[in-house]
């Protein structure tokens, strides 16, 4: 067995802890593959699945609790910051808020299985002034389900994963380079996806000053208030002339408009 695998086994649980913590705090380092490998190693008796479970749940709870406290302290501004740094442009605050509004703290039970939602749900719970104890209970159960699913998959497919590990073992430090390249490629793809979205939006975001000038000149395009219903309940005001759009009213509102009509959209 090479030094590489020895290192993984020797520092396995702290590595899993670090990986889970970094992912939950927002770093683009997926932890699920690590949990699956840890599960496979535990099936071979080379790691303790109990230690992996406990370390992962604790790491997840610490990271989520930090976000929960930040949400409680800074409110919805934290969500906007998260959206700015997130590599998942589809995980917009509006969708997350709508989901959280629908399911409440129960959404934490499945949050970790939904890309983007996992990171935004804890500060959202904090901003919504949910009870700390209830948050920790639901978040802890959610973390348990997520970690256990990775470990169970690893244990179930440990023979196949052992083959992959052996192949990596033969590659030695090349394996590290390949994995690092794969992660870099994943980040690059996400980044390109985000750039692509911005291009589709023409990246020409409109400043509030320009919009005010357009309104004053009477040349403002259609303005759409795309905040979630929860956000509109918190602040029942809108930019003058803005139309409020819910998912189910979108069709009727925009059916008669030409596709080249300029539309300015705002969220919270």
């Amino acid at each position: 067995m090479t030094q590489l695998i020895h290192s993984v086994i020797r520092y396995g649980v702290p590595l899993v802890f670090l990986n889970v913590f970094l992912e939950q705090i927002g770093a683009p380092v997926p932890a699920l593959p690590t949990l699956i490998v840890a599960g496979a190693l535990s099936a071979d008796g080379r790691m303790s699945s109990t230690h992996v479970l406990v370390a992962s749940i604790v790491a997840s709870l610490i990271a989520d609790w930090i976000w929960f406290l930040l949400g409680r302290r800074h409110g919805y501004r934290v969500l906007r910051t998260l959206c700015r740094i997130s590599l998942s442009p589809d995980s917009c605050v509006r969708e997350t808020e709508a989901r959280f509004e629908r399911w409440g703290l129960k959404s934490l039970l499945i949050a970790k299985f939904i890309p983007g939602f996992s990171l935004v749900a804890p500060p959202l719970a904090g901003a919504a002034r949910q009870s700390t104890i209830a948050f920790l209970i639901y978040d802890g159960i959610g973390a348990l389900l997520w970690v256990a699913s990775g470990v169970v998959v690893g244990r179930a497919f440990h023979h196949a994963i052992a083959d992959v590990l052996n192949a990596l073992e033969n590659l030695g430090w090349w394996a590290v380079a390949i994995i690092a390249s794969a992660i870099a490629l994943l980040i690059a793809l996400k980044w390109m996806q985000r750039r692509s979205l911005y291009r589709r939006l023409r990246m020409a975001r409109v400043s509030v000053h320009d919009l005010k000038r357009m309104l004053d000149e009477g040349s403002a395009p259609m303005i759409v208030d795309a905040r979630s219903s929860a956000a509109r309940k918190r602040d029942a005001r809108r930019i003058p002339t803005a139309v409020v759009v819910e998912g189910d009213t979108l069709q009727e509102r925009f059916a008669a408009l030409p596709p080249n009509r300029e539309i300015i959209v705002y969220c919270t």
Binding site: R80, V206, F254, Y266
Partner: peptide
């Protein structure tokens, strides 16, 4: 959603509603 429905000139407001409020610009009640 608007882009998916074929609208080609959809532009986001920089800073969102909070930036509008912070700038002290007028608002309407919903």
């Amino acid at each position: 959603m608007l882009i998916d429905r074929g609208f080609t000139l959809v532009r986001p407001l920089k800073g969102g509603f909070e930036a509008w409020i912070e700038a002290g610009y007028p608002v309407e009640n919903l």
